[in-house]
Nucleic acid binder design. Structure first.
Lengths: 339, 339
DNA sequence: CTGTTAGCGCATTCAT
DNA sequence: ATGAATGCGCTAACAG
C-alpha cells in the first residue's frame, strides 16, 4: 500500500497560495473566477490526481445521489431482471444503487430500511417481503423526505407510488386464448393463498367466465407452495375432479413444468391430453420438448426501469411539491410457444 | 411530506441542557457517563426518534462500511448468484453493498470505479469487463487504501486477490468422465478465443489427452460467440470433420442446448449418436427431455461469498499490515443428469 | 475577481 | 462525570 496522502482542495489552495473557496469555485467552473487562476487550479488538480471526497459533499449537501433497492432475493430471475433495469436508469441519472435482500423476512427488511435511511439515500425502491403487512416502517421515511416506490409486491392502497404487473390484463389474455382453443374447463394453480396475485388471478378468472356466461366452479382453483411437491399435490387435486380441467393456468413457468412432469408420471400427455399456460416466459421454454403451450411475459426489466423512472421524477422535482402517487401497471404479453 | 426536522445530538443536548459530547457518549454507552444522564439521554433519543446521520459519521470516521461490486451483467444467472452471496456475507458483517454493471464496457467500468472511489467505499469486488486489458484504474485504488478482490473474470497475475472457478479441475473431471464412458474423440466448444477460460479449457483438455497417450487433434477445438447461430456454426464445423467427435464439452449449458438443437435438426440424436457435457448446471436441465448428459456446477453463490470473505478479512485487518494476496480456486462438481 | 467565515453532525482530545 | 473546543472536506453566504 503506497497510501500517499489523498489531495484535498485545501492542499491545492496551500500550494497555490490562494483560498479554498477560490479553488472550489475554479474546480466548478464558476464564472467569477479569472481564467488565469482557473487554469492554474485545474492543472494542479490534475497533476495531484485530485478527486473530490464525495462523503464530504454528501454530508454537506444533504444529498447522496444514491437510491436503495430492497427486494426478497437477488437470485430470482424476475428480481435479477428488475434490478438490472433499475441500475441502468439510475446510472443514466448519475445515481448510485445500494442493494439489500430481505429474504422474505420482515425483520431483515426493517433493518435494511433503517440502514438506508440513516445513510440518507435519496429514495428507495422496494418489493415487499412476502410477510410484510404493516407499512409503518415505510411511512416513517416521510419524515426524512425519502420517497418510496413499490414494485411487483406492492401494497394494496393507491396512496403509494407503485409499479406492478397488470394481472387482470395478462390473465384475461391467457384465458381468452384458451377459450379460443376450445377449452371450457380451465384449472388454475395459484401460489399460496395469502399472495395478492393469487386473489387477483382468481378474480379475473371468475370475471371472464362470468362474462362468457360459463358457470364458475371453484374446485378448479388450486393453490400451491411453489415447491415441486406442492405443485404435484395441486395438480393431483385438479386431476381427481369428476370433471378435470382440459387446460391449466399456472402461476409461473416452473410450477407449470413441475405440473407437466406430474402429469407425465400419470401418463397424461402435455399439449395433447391437457394444456398449460403460465407466467414469466423463461428462455428455457425454447429448449423443451414439451413446454407450456404459451407463457405470459412479465417484462421484469421494464418494471424495474419504470419504478426507477418514477423515482427519478420524484427526486428531480422540488421536495415540497412532488407529483401525486403514480399507480402503474405493466402489461404482459402472451407468447405462444411454437410447436 | 410531513418533513419534521430530523433530530440530531445537538437538539437532544439543547433540550436536556447538557453538552453534545455528553449526548454522544451517552448514546455510545461510554463508561464515564453517569447512569442518570445516560438514561435521560437515551430516553429522549428514543422519544424523538433520533437516528444517527451516517453521512456525517462516514465523513468523520473515514470509513463507510460500504463495499462496491462491479460486474458485467446483473441479469446473468452466474452473476445474480454471485451478488446474492456477496450481499449475504456483507450484511452479516454490517456492510452495505453498492452495485454497478459494466455491461462489458471498459469505459463504464472506469466510470463506476471512479464513482465508488470518490464515495470512499471501503473495498471493491470486481468481475472484469470482457475487454479490460489494462488494470491501471484498479491499481490506482491503492493510493486510497481501497482493497480489491477480483472474481470469475480475474487478471492473470497472482499479485491480486482473486477467486475463480477451478477450470483445470472441473475440465479434468468432465473429460475423465467422458473417457470412462468410452469416448476417445472429444470435441470442445469454447467461447470467444480471447476469453481466458477458452485457453484454460483447451490447455487442460490437451494435458489430459497427453497423459492418456491419446493424440491431440486441434480441429476438435471450436470457438463460438455464444449466440445461437455462432454455436450452430461451431457444431457444424465439428460434425463436418472426417472423424467427428462422439462427445462434446461445451462452455455452458445454453451453448450445449443450442448445439443439441442443431444436432437434432441434422437428425443426430443427443445421448445416443453424440453426448454433451457442459458447465453451469442450470436448474432447467431437470425439465429437459434430452439434456446434456452431465454439467459442471460452478457454485456462483459460493464464489461470491468467498470473494466477500476475503474482502472482509482485508477490511478487518489493520490497513498497514494486510495479508498477502489470496488466489482462490473454487472446485466444480460434475452433476450427472439422470436418464 | 478573490478572500474570510461559518457550518453541516458527529467523535474525540483536552480540560475541569 | 461533564463541558468546551476542534476538525473531517467541502460549499456558499457575505464581504470586500
Amino acid at each position: 500500500m503506497t497510501m500517499n496522502k489523498v489531495p484535498t482542495i485545501k492542499e491545492i489552495a496551500k500550494q497555490l497560495k490562494i483560498s479554498v473557496s477560490t479553488v472550489s469555485r475554479a474546480l466548478h467552473d464558476h464564472p467569477s473566477i479569472g481564467l488565469r487562476t482557473k487554469t492554474r487550479v485545474q492543472e494542479l488538480a490534475k497533476e495531484l490526481g485530485y478527486e473530490p471526497n464525495q462523503t464530504a459533499i454528501f454530508f454537506k449537501q444533504r444529498k447522496t445521489f444514491t437510491i436503495g433497492v430492497i427486494l426478497p432475493y437477488l437470485i430470482e430471475d424476475f428480481f435479477a431482471g428488475a434490478i438490472s433495469g433499475i441500475e441502468e436508469i439510475a446510472m443514466q441519472h448519475k445515481y448510485n444503487v445500494l442493494i439489500g435482500q430481505s429474504q422474505d423476512n420482515v425483520e431483515r427488511e426493517k433493518e435494511i430500511l433503517t440502514a438506508m435511511k440513516n445513510q440518507r439515500v435519496d429514495g428507495i425502491i422496494v418489493s415487499l417481503s412476502k410477510h410484510t403487512k404493516n407499512l409503518d416502517h415505510f411511512t416513517a421515511l416521510e419524515k426524512y423526505g425519502i420517497p418510496v416506490v413499490f414494485f411487483d409486491r406492492v401494497p394494496a392502497s393507491n396512496d403509494y407510488n407503485k409499479v406492478a404487473f397488470n394481472m387482470p390484463q395478462g390473465t384475461h389474455q391467457a384465458i381468452t386464448y384458451l377459450m379460443e382453443k376450445g377449452h371450457r374447463r380451465i384449472g388454475i394453480i395459484n401460489g399460496p393463498e395469502e399472495m395478492k396475485s393469487s386473489k387477483e388471478r382468481t378474480d379475473t378468472y371468475m370475471e371472464v367466465m362470468q362474462k362468457k356466461r360459463l358457470k364458475i366452479d371453484l374446485t378448479l382453483v388450486a393453490y400451491c407452495d411453489l415447491t415441486r411437491e406442492g405443485t404435484a399435490e395441486a395438480m393431483e387435486s385438479l386431476l381427481s375432479l369428476k370433471q378435470p380441467p382440459t387446460a391449466v393456468l399456472a402461476i409461473n413457468d416452473y410450477v407449470a413444468l413441475d405440473a407437466i412432469q406430474y402429469c407425465k408420471s400419470k401418463k397424461i400427455k402435455n399439449n395433447k391430453d391437457i394444456f398449460f399456460v403460465s407466467y414469466a416466459n423463461l428462455p428455457i421454454t425454447n429448449y423443451l420438448e414439451s413446454p407450456p403451450m404459451a407463457s405470459i411475459e412479465q417484462y421484469p426489466k421494464k418494471q424495474g426501469m419504470k419504478a426507477a423512472d418514477i423515482l427519478m421524477e420524484l427526486l428531480e422535482s422540488p421536495e415540497d411539491q412532488r407529483p401525486a402517487p403514480q399507480n402503474c401497471l405493466i402489461d404482459g404479453e402472451l407468447v405462444i410457444h411454437g410447436r
